[in-house]
Amino acid sequence: MKQLLAFSGIEPERLELKWVSSAEGPRFAHVVTDFVERIRGLGPSPLRTGASARKAG
């Protein structure tokens, strides 16, 4: 999936797949926080321009 995104011109870092067990609460929080920080760093998606950005309003 990441390779296909890169080929289409979308930063592959915007996608992450992680397996977290239901017993791993702290790990889940850690994984999600990390991801949110990473996405913040990347800024708005390059797809949110023109029509889609207007619709999203």
Binding site: A6, F7, S8, G9, I10, E11, P46, L47
Partner: peptide, 9 residues
């Protein structure tokens, strides 16, 4: 990356 996105879009 941007060139690819432009191309496909």
């Amino acid at each position: 990356l941007l060139g690819r996105l432009d191309y496909w879009k």
